[in-house]
Design a binder for these strands. Structure first.
Lengths: 190, 190
DNA sequence: GGGCTAGTCTAGCGGCGCTAGAAGTTCTAG
DNA sequence: CTAGAACTTCTAGCGCCGCTAGACTAGCCC
């Protein structure tokens, strides 16, 4: 039985590793050349297999791969925002989180795109994503120290800033000023 | 000479009309079935011609068509926001503009997508778009009555709210509350 | 050994954006 | 009046896309 279990274990591990390879490769390619350059053929090729193998791991095709990448993103963004509040409070925490959020969006544009450009149902279709999505929101809530509506507004500013900065619609040289003003307008009342 | 001019006039008019047909058809199809359903073949078919004719009007292909649709959108959004401030001042104006902006984004999701999902260079590549883009920003500036940075921030909240609402990430039943809070946080000092 | 299952691949479908070059039509110049 | 230039439009095709049916191997169980 141990042998059989060992085999099954092996198999599971091999599949899991390959699945991760796909996700990593997709993310890397997207970040380097954009999501349009991520095709099922290229992806399958990069891991040394053919398309049907990829579809074995992700029956939903490219969309499901993007969703898996996005899930990683949500975890990383939440963690970045939580880390940013360390040692800060009040307005300082708000600005620190804002900076962390915008840095994340700026440094991983393709990842951020997967997280927010995809219809949300695509994410919820995958098991256990809800907690991940929730965690990021909570990290913002801690910083602004407000009710749900305030947090939603805070999130919206950050998301809006990230998108507009990325598409070159805001003056890059005024970035620090914008973050400071976010602090002024969203700092919790003392 | 009048005859020759008349012919040329005719030709210009015919071409302009067909161009407009393409733009209108693209917009309608996108709004009804999403931009993925807008293909050069379908578009050409819908106006009773073939693909090369469409490419004669829009050498940049689908992207350039989207850009033309987006341009219409910028004009309409700016006009909506300007109209919203009429008869309001201070916080009232801010909330009115916010409501107008979000209504626009909610009622024309495909149009809004063309405006902001497309790289900005695509828009500037078309002659005379800069003024259109500027006009919308100015309408926001009037409402918040602040400097450039404040307006950028106000724009970011609206854009962020629009995108997150559209993708179902904010609680729909708290929409009014969010707009009211935008008013509270962005009303110009009296 | 002989059948069964799992894993993988080949080959193909329909559709995409885009374009070269043929064919038809209208205008112009001699 | 006619020959050719210029314009307009179409046919047909390229290479790529996401996705899938069915053939082929290799290892396991009886």
């Amino acid at each position: 039985m141990t042998r059989v279990d060992g085999k099954h274990e092996d198999r599971r591990a091999r599949l899991a590793e390959r699945r991760q390879q796909i996700v990593d490769q997709a993310r890397a390619t997207a970040e380097a050349e954009g999501w349009a350059a991520v095709t099922t053929r290229r992806l399958a090729d990069a891991i040394g297999y053919t398309q049907p193998v990829l579809y074995g791991h992700f029956p939903g095709g490219k969309t499901e791969v993007m969703s898996a990448v996005a899930l990683q993103g949500f975890a990383e963004l939440a963690s970045s925002c939580r880390a940013a509040t360390d040692g800060h409070g009040g307005r300082g925490a708000v600005e620190a989180v804002a900076r962390a959020y915008l840095d994340f969006a700026a440094h991983h544009p393709a990842l951020y795109e997967a997280m927010f450009r995809l219809p949300i149902e695509a994410h919820f279709a995958v098991e256990g994503n809800e907690a991940e999505l929730r965690a990021g929101f909570d990290a913002l809530a801690v910083a602004v120290h407000g009710d749900g509506t305030t947090t939603e507004l805070f999130w919206s500013v950050l998301h809006g800033l990230g998108e507009l900065e990325r598409s070159g619609r805001l003056r890059p040289e005024h970035r620090a000023e914008r973050i400071s003003e976010v602090g002024a307008r969203f700092a919790p009342a003392p």
